[in-house]
């Protein structure tokens, strides 16, 4: 990260103080303007990033607003025990796992495929138009996207049911059917993210040596063969890195889309850790219990990230670090 350019060496390159403390003091003095500039950033990270980490100790306490984080009574692992013993635990675990897994497995190939296909387009204007359109969903808010989905799937006026009716099927109220929840969620996620996730793969494809294609063309390779034997292997390192990142984040199923798309009839499949934390903590003001669930979720997510990184390195690939 820190290569030293000759032009950024100290202004006073004269004497170098000997003792460590004196050295530090002179360093601080030299950098005092920079340190002043850095103060707002420091306050922000201490208050809003490390503060909540410290606040997590309420997961081991019975938080009361009056006694504050530090003054509240310690209860050890009580909240965790209660959570693991509750029937909610396995339901949430299963829902979070399956929603994350299906999003990963189904969602992962589409941006790659899209990027490869886009790369095959010869007319630059067409390619650009399609790509520009493909980002559009990622610019729309979750609320708008969810609203569109609800409208589209509505049994009374939705386009999907209108088509079903035309084809002679009975209309279905998809959003109240637990068996459809995950499918809808995954499809929406693919629709939202395919375009911008393809950007990374397109950049990787652009980095492939063009002489490889020329040589293959001379050898009479078809375009499909070139896609399979040049493009795909060429972006394999990127695919692997993305896969580690994604599987590391598998358990981080966001609450926003679930909150907007689920309803009491689909709680049994839609409720995930993050929505549970929101409901228990902010709606039922069960702060300590919700913080415990949140901490458990974070720990699982972190373990997943470390695990996928470890597996990838063991398999001989590059890890993230």
């Amino acid at each position: 990260m820190g290569t030293i350019h000759p032009d950024v060496l100290h202004r006073q390159t004269g004497r170098v103080p000997r003792s460590g403390l004196a050295k530090m003091a002179s360093h601080i003095k030299k950098d005092r303007q920079l340190l002043i500039l850095f103060i707002p950033c420091m306050i922000f990270y201490v208050l809003f990033r490390y503060g909540p980490l410290y606040g997590l100790i309420i997961a081991f306490k019975d938080y009361s607003v009056y006694q504050g984080v530090w003054g509240s009574e310690w209860v050890g692992f009580e909240h965790f025990r209660r959570f693991f013993d509750s029937p909610d635990f396995w339901v949430l675990f299963k829902n979070t796992f399956l929603l994350g897994l299906f999003t990963l497995l189904w969602g992962f190939p589409f941006p790659i495929l899209f990027a490869i296909l886009l790369n095959e387009v010869r007319r630059a204007a067409f390619k650009k138009t399609v790509q520009t359109f493909s980002y559009l969903p990622s610019f729309l808010s979750v609320v708008i996207v969810s609203s569109m989905i609800i409208d589209f799937l509505s049994p009374t006026h939705g386009v999907v049911n209108e088509v079903l009716k035309q084809l002679g099927f009975a209309p279905k109220y998809f959003l109240t059917m637990p068996e459809w929840f995950r499918t809808i969620y995954v499809l929406v996620t693919i629709w939202q993210t395919m375009g911008y996730e393809a950007i990374i793969y397109l950049a990787a494809i652009a980095g492939i040596d063009p002489t490889l294609y020329e040589a293959a063309k001379v050898d009479g390779a078809t375009r499909l063969q070139m896609m399979r034997h040049i493009t795909l292997p060429g972006i394999m390192p990127t695919i692997l890195i993305m896969f580690i990142l994604k599987s590391g984040a598998m358990f981080r199923v966001g609450y926003e889309k679930v909150l907007l798309l689920y309803n009491p009839m689909t709680y049994e499949v839609g409720d995930v850790f993050s929505t549970y934390v929101y409901r228990k903590g902010l709606l039922e003001t069960n702060y300590s219990y919700a913080a415990a669930v949140g901490l458990f979720e974070s720990v699982i997510a972190l373990v997943m990230l470390l695990l996928s990184n470890f597996v990838s390195r063991k398999a001989g690939g590059k890890g993230l670090w």
Partner: peptide, 11 residues
């Protein structure tokens, strides 16, 4: 590493 929504909310 982050504290999540509950501790942030409390702050």
């Amino acid at each position: 590493l982050n504290g999540g929504i509950i501790p942030t909310y409390l702050i």
